[in-house]
Design a protein around this nucleic acid. Structure first.
Length: 275
DNA sequence: AAAGCACCCTGTACGC
DNA sequence: TGCGTACAGGGTGCTT
């Protein structure tokens, strides 16, 4: 499931390749992948546009064009944005193909069809309601504490809320809470200053480590880097998808509960729901 | 503000 | 072997 580290990995892979290239043809194989504008207008407006930069905001991949137009790509569950040479055999589940002027192709593959592409002159209508970037300089432990103050919702649900903090998903939220020794059901506002500090540190550490390894590719192989290779972080996951396995810290069996309709892994020994 | 649910999808895992 | 069903998950939108 692409989260911040996976999206960052894709973006870094594209940053060295795409700026300066232009779109020579557009093929839409699954129309609903194009959230806006309508597929025909999407294809027509992209034609001939030159890419100036590639960046990330939360889990969105952002392609800026010379004209000021912006292409937003969200991978959701199974989306992949892969740069392939001309003549390369096209993989399965291709939804949209952007042909480049150097004959390479930027291919949006998406088995479950949840991913979305948006072409817009005003990306802030989409990106504007995202919370802070967890790796940004101004995302300090102090700011995090202010955001959490008074919040009665479960810390796990808050961390998954993209308008609260941008970019975290189920894998890294589970990992960060375990790392910080915080129970996923704790009300956000109930965390002590020391706990907020620990969680802030854990979030940044886990995300940075995952980026360093090129993201997490689980056994289902859903995530791919921009060049089609897998991420290397999966063996480093301490708790995610490890139900009944011993906690790496204390050896107690990892528990699995459901929080906000999401599978949640934690160690009942290390992450206590204290009063 | 918070929580629950349906929805969008399809591969996988399971029970019979 | 094969069919049917539950489940996984990010995000949106609606209801409670």
């Amino acid at each position: 499931m692409p989260e911040l580290p996976e999206v960052e990995t894709v973006v870094r892979g594209l940053q060295t390749q795409l700026p300066g290239r232009s779109i020579s043809a557009v093929a839409v194989r699954w129309k609903r992948t194009i959230a806006a504008p309508k597929p025909a207008a999407f294809a027509r407006r992209l034609l001939g546009q030159t890419i100036t930069s590639v960046r990330r905001r939360g889990k969105w991949i952002v392609l800026d064009f010379e004209s000021g137009a912006v292409l937003l790509a969200h991978l959701r569950m199974t989306g992949q944005l892969i740069l392939e040479p001309a003549g390369y055999p096209e993989g399965d589940y291709t939804r949209v193909v952007l042909h480049l002027d150097d004959d390479r192709r930027l291919r949006f593959s998406d088995m479950r069809k949840f991913g979305r592409l948006i072409l817009t002159p005003d990306p802030e209508t989409v990106l504007g309601h995202l919370g802070p970037e967890p790796l940004a300089n101004d995302f300090t432990s102090q700011q995090f504490r202010h955001l959490l103050a008074g919040r009665r919702g479960r810390i796990k649900s808050l961390l998954l809320d993209q308008s609260f903090v941008a970019g975290l998903g189920n894998i890294y939220v589970n990992e960060a809470l375990w790392e910080a020794r915080i129970h996923p059901l704790r009300p956000g506002g109930s965390l002590s200053v020391a706990e907020v500090e620990r969680l802030h540190t854990a979030i940044q550490a886990v995300i940075r480590a995952a980026i360093d390894e090129g993201g997490t590719t689980l056994a289902n192989g859903n995530f791919r880097q921009a060049d089609g290779t897998a991420g290397r972080y999966a063996p480093h996951l301490q708790i995610y998808d490890r139900q009944e396995e011993p906690c790496p810290c204390c050896g107690a069996p990892v528990k699995r509960i459901t929080v906000g309709q999401r599978g949640t892994y934690f160690c009942a020994c290390c992450q206590v729901l204290e009063e």
